[in-house]
Design a protein around this nucleic acid. Structure first.
Lengths: 139, 139
DNA sequence: CTCTGTGCAAAGCGTTTGCAAACGA
DNA sequence: TCGTTTGCAAACGCTTTGCACAGAG
């Protein structure tokens, strides 16, 4: 909590209880969408407004404290910004997990070939997670 | 055009002039968002409805004829589904281009490490395109 | 001829905004 | 205390829906 407070202040954001709990929740879940976050927050702050969640998500996203994860056909989810990683999305159960991969090779290749200065490489793998593979043999 | 007609019929969609021109426009631009597509279509069909554009985008996306390209902080764009490729996005001018890269290595690695059966690998490189690099030396 | 697609208007939702009161620094 | 944040309600903008007519197969 003291920790979260410092993180927020570092980004010029006041450490309100709502924000601290938002970060806790995002950290706990890894990735979360607005509605799930709102539901989770209501358990702690019964009168919290959805507008507050939006405002905070926006202020934290604007300065890079949070990262938007947009995936075709799904709701946008948010995560704490952290070291470069990729996403694994299960098309069956919707689980989204992180995986650390080495992007240097593809990034350098793409940069050379295109002439772009590449600042960021986003990678998402879509497929079936081990659990869903077991649950349903017929894919 | 005869070509587009066949493509549509293959997907159980009737080949209306609006749809044929939508595909033409998407093919021409490579990637396009709803509003730009609507504007382009209005030149040909002055009375076309935005609802028609949405309905067609949805029916073509549902069956995989079109692909949704969702990128953090930007409007969703659509493209014709084609062979596996990656995207290059210029953060300055917003240009979105295709680049063909070999995703096998990262995909196999991620699959082994996670146990996922991976069906699709989405890659987006964000950076500065060559043109914007020239236009502005100070980044 | 039948069923799908189109255009229009209205409805639906997710997101943002304005404001007064509450709160953090 | 001062500037920021909160909660509420209203506004906004994008997307979808219902319906009658038009058009493709």
């Amino acid at each position: 909590m003291q920790n979260y407070k410092e993180m927020l202040n570092k980004y010029n954001l006041k450490a309100t209880p709502q924000r601290i709990y938002m970060i806790k929740e995002i950290e706990k879940k890894g990735h979360i969408d607005i509605d799930d976050l709102y539901e989770a927050l209501k358990n702690i702050f019964p009168y919290i407004s959805l507008a507050t969640v939006y405002k905070n998500i926006n202020s934290m996203t604007k300065n890079g404290f949070l990262i938007e994860v947009k995936i075709p056909k799904l709701k946008t989810r948010y995560e704490l910004s952290k070291n470069s990683h990729a996403h694994l999305l299960c098309k069956k159960c919707g689980e989204l997990t992180d995986i650390f991969i080495d992007k240097k090779w593809i990034t350098n290749n793409a940069s050379e070939e295109s002439g772009y200065i590449i600042e960021n490489t986003l990678v998402t793998f879509e497929g079936i997670c081990p659990k869903c593979q077991k649950d349903n043999k017929f894919l």
